[in-house]
């Protein structure tokens, strides 16, 4: 957690609660149960958990795509918890998102340059000429061919689309980007390249990032801090390397132990340790 604590956090989440209505006669389903964390400027916080842990819900709640039931979300000191989408707009430039599915996050009916100029014109009120110039720069910055602007999303591969989505997110110079499984749909080598691009942009723009993923192995090197989420609650919160190398919570330990590592000998050892741990656990509960 470096020296970031002295600076005012860019995002504060306090006791966040999200419930989904249960329908006729059924109780509401609590998917996020009292989650609190802060993100400092330039910090990368990873949110990891298995399916149903609520990790994506937290991201969507911060973005205003899901409604919070309780708690508070402060962005740049302002309470944005219950703002509707209209009142949220003034924060839109500072708070951006990159989603998992690179095939769904770009409107298939618009050309790349239109997709990229739209937020520039709406948010930064740039002339179309100015916006066009920035788009050309951006495409180059994220490693796309210069003529990509005149094409439709369907022309591009998953990795390239994710680069375009990244370009759109950074175009308005945000302070925080929420990456929801941004690299999960990509091949390993593409994923590595996209992660590298994100890391560069983070450095260049002093971006803070909430990096939501199920992939613990990415987190260790990519994030500063990590939150492990289980059934809507935080079970462990600390520096990424520490949590991955020396997990304290039992759930985190089992989660870490289940991740296979690309080294047959080390993996055999880890597997043995996992089985011993499960055995102890089974005895404990019996």
């Amino acid at each position: 957690m470096k020296e970031t604590k002295t600076v005012a956090p860019i995002l504060e989440v306090k006791d966040l609660i999200v419930e989904y209505p249960g329908g006729f006669g059924k109780p509401a389903k609590r998917v996020i149960d009292g989650v609190s964390f802060n993100i400092a400027p330039g910090e990368t916080l990873a949110l990891v958990g298995e399916s149903g842990s609520g990790k994506s819900t937290i991201g969507n709640t911060i973005l205003g795509l899901t409604k919070a039931t309780g708690g508070q979300i402060n962005f740049e000191g302002a309470d944005i918890t219950y703002l509707n989408l209209k009142n949220r707009r003034k924060f839109a430039a500072d708070l951006q998102a990159i989603f998992q599915n690179p095939y769904g996050s770009l409107n298939p009916g618009l050309k790349i340059k239109d997709i990229l100029t739209e937020p520039l014109q709406v948010q930064r009120k740039l002339s179309s000429q100015e916006a066009g110039r920035i788009v050309t720069e951006l495409l180059q910055r994220v490693g796309m061919p210069a003529n990509s602007g005149d094409r439709y999303p369907s022309h591009f591969s998953g990795g390239q689309r994710q680069r375009i989505a990244i370009a759109r997110a950074v175009s308005v110079k945000p302070k925080l980007i929420i990456c929801d499984e941004a690299t999960s749909a990509l091949d390993v080598s593409t994923q590595a390249a996209v992660l590298e691009l994100l890391a560069e942009l983070k450095r260049d723009f002093n971006l803070a990032m909430l990096f939501i993923t199920h992939h613990l192995a990415i987190v260790r090197n990519f994030a500063d801090n990590v939150i492990v989420l289980n059934k809507g609650q935080i079970v462990e919160y600390g520096p990424a390397k520490q949590v991955c190398d020396n997990p304290q919570d039992l759930y985190t330990q089992l989660l870490v132990a289940a991740v296979p590592v690309p080294d047959p000998l080390a993996q055999a050892q880890r597997r043995k340790e996992r089985h011993e741990k499960l055995l102890v656990l089974a005895k404990g509960t019996a």
């Binding site: 973005l63 205003g64 795509l65 989408l85 209209k86 949220r88 707009r89 003034k90 924060f91 839109a92 430039a93 708070l95 951006q96 998102a97 989603f99 998992q100 599915n101 769904g104 996050s105 770009l106 409107n107 298939p108 009916g109 618009l110 739209e118 937020p119 709406v122 948010q123 989505a165 759109r168 308005v172």
Partner: peptide, 26 residues
């Protein structure tokens, strides 16, 4: 629920713009 509309909302676009530019054409 398509992500590009989510992305458009996150970009701070208004409802009218989202409906007529991102939803209706498709």
């Amino acid at each position: 629920e398509e992500l590009y509309v989510g992305a458009a909302k996150v970009s701070g676009l208004g409802s009218g713009r989202i409906i007529f530019r991102h939803i209706l054409p498709n």
